Amino acid sequence: MAGSRRRSVTVVAVALLLVAAGWVVPRWWVQVASPTPTPVPTAALESARAALPGLAVVEPLPLTEYEREFFGDPWADVDGNGCDTRNDVLGRWLTTQVRDPIVNCVVESGRLHDPYTGHVIDFRRGPSTSAAVQIDHVVALADAWRKGASHWLPGHALAFANDPANLIPVDGAANQAKGAADAAGWLPPNRGFRCAYVVQQILVKDAYGLGVSATELATLQEVLGGDCPVGASSARAAGAGHTEAVGEEVMSAARCPHCRSAPVASSHGHRVFGASQERRDARVPDRRHSRLQRHRPGDRPRVRVPAAAPPR
């Protein structure tokens, strides 16, 4: 009788271990396996390669006078849909979402396939947990300010800071490590996402008339000249551990004569331009960029240059 009882206990224990392993191992593997490289649509890659030589090479302004307030209140409801930009972005990217039962646009929990690290993050809203997922400005606000945005009108600056084409939810620690760095100072640790990341930066800078430093330009050229995974935009398989970063509708950012930034004065008093040596028009409209901003569904025009798109 005692032997039979011990065998039963052993069988139950083994069964429980197998169940636990079946639950833990897949989640562990998602975190440690090398993420699948993010494919960049051919049209997007070609657009970035065509736009890169036209970006003005500038001497970045010092950060001594930069203030985050230049870009307005963080995560303002710029599209008037009743939901702040942070929740708009979380709502577009996170899978298996749970929404607030009263304020439906507020994301209480969900799962993020982080493009910067390739890890999977289980997000839960709360004072001690929300920071695990942060919304990154792919072209950092301070970087934009240093390279052409410092003279923008308030409305244009606010629109840029909340433009979903320049926003990606990412691992909080990775976002903090990036800070305000450009591509020369920081690239995603997930090497399979670097080409998509660089393409996104170039399209955003081109559309908004922002410049690049000489070292940044060299990094962008190096990444674009490397082995960029090219392919048609396709939905990410659930649990694949990476995010489709560049959607089908990524298009070349048309040059807008009213959106070009004025050249940035160098520390030597002269102005530095790109290869064309053209003087950029300093006028900037007090509105969103007409070809870059992603709008909410409705009768307003669709985005023309979303440098990033969530999984579908």
Rank of each mutant, 00 (worst) to 15 (best):
218 A>P: 05
218 A>R: 11
219 T>Y: 00
219 T>S: 01
220 L>G: 07
220 L>Q: 14
220 L>I: 14
221 Q>N: 13
222 E>R: 14
223 V>E: 11
224 L>H: 08
224 L>W: 10
225 G>K: 06
225 G>F: 03
226 G>D: 01
227 D>H: 08
229 P>I: 00
229 P>W: 14
229 P>A: 11
230 V>S: 07
231 G>S: 13
231 G>P: 03
233 S>Q: 06
234 S>E: 11
234 S>M: 05
235 A>Q: 13
235 A>I: 14
235 A>W: 11
235 A>K: 14
236 R>S: 14
236 R>P: 08
236 R>Y: 08
236 R>A: 10
239 G>T: 00
239 G>E: 00
241 G>K: 05
243 T>Y: 01
244 E>C: 01
244 E>D: 12
244 E>W: 08
245 A>K: 05
245 A>R: 04
245 A>I: 14
245 A>C: 08
246 V>A: 04
247 G>R: 09
248 E>I: 00
248 E>S: 07
249 E>F: 15
249 E>W: 09
250 V>K: 00
250 V>N: 00
251 M>S: 15
251 M>C: 05
251 M>D: 14
252 S>H: 13
253 A>I: 07
253 A>Y: 00
253 A>K: 05
253 A>V: 13
254 A>H: 06
254 A>N: 02
255 R>K: 00
256 C>R: 13
256 C>L: 11
256 C>V: 08
257 P>W: 02
257 P>A: 11
257 P>K: 01
257 P>T: 02
259 C>A: 04
259 C>R: 03
259 C>K: 00
260 R>T: 15
261 S>R: 00
261 S>P: 01
261 S>W: 01
261 S>A: 10
261 S>H: 03
262 A>R: 04
263 P>V: 00
263 P>W: 14
264 V>N: 04
264 V>A: 03
264 V>D: 02
264 V>T: 07
265 A>L: 04
265 A>G: 00
266 S>A: 14
266 S>Q: 04
266 S>P: 03
266 S>V: 02
267 S>W: 11
267 S>D: 10
268 H>M: 08
268 H>G: 13
270 H>P: 02
271 R>M: 02
272 V>A: 05
273 F>K: 02
273 F>T: 02
273 F>G: 01
274 G>R: 08
275 A>V: 09
276 S>E: 13
276 S>D: 15
278 E>T: 14
278 E>Y: 07
278 E>S: 13
280 R>E: 12
280 R>D: 10
281 D>E: 05
282 A>K: 09
282 A>G: 11
283 R>K: 11
284 V>Y: 15
285 P>F: 07
286 D>K: 12
286 D>F: 09
287 R>H: 06
287 R>I: 10
288 R>L: 15
289 H>Q: 02
289 H>A: 06
290 S>A: 15
291 R>Y: 09
291 R>V: 12
291 R>I: 15
291 R>P: 02
291 R>A: 13
292 L>I: 05
292 L>V: 12
292 L>C: 09
292 L>Y: 03
292 L>A: 14
293 Q>N: 12
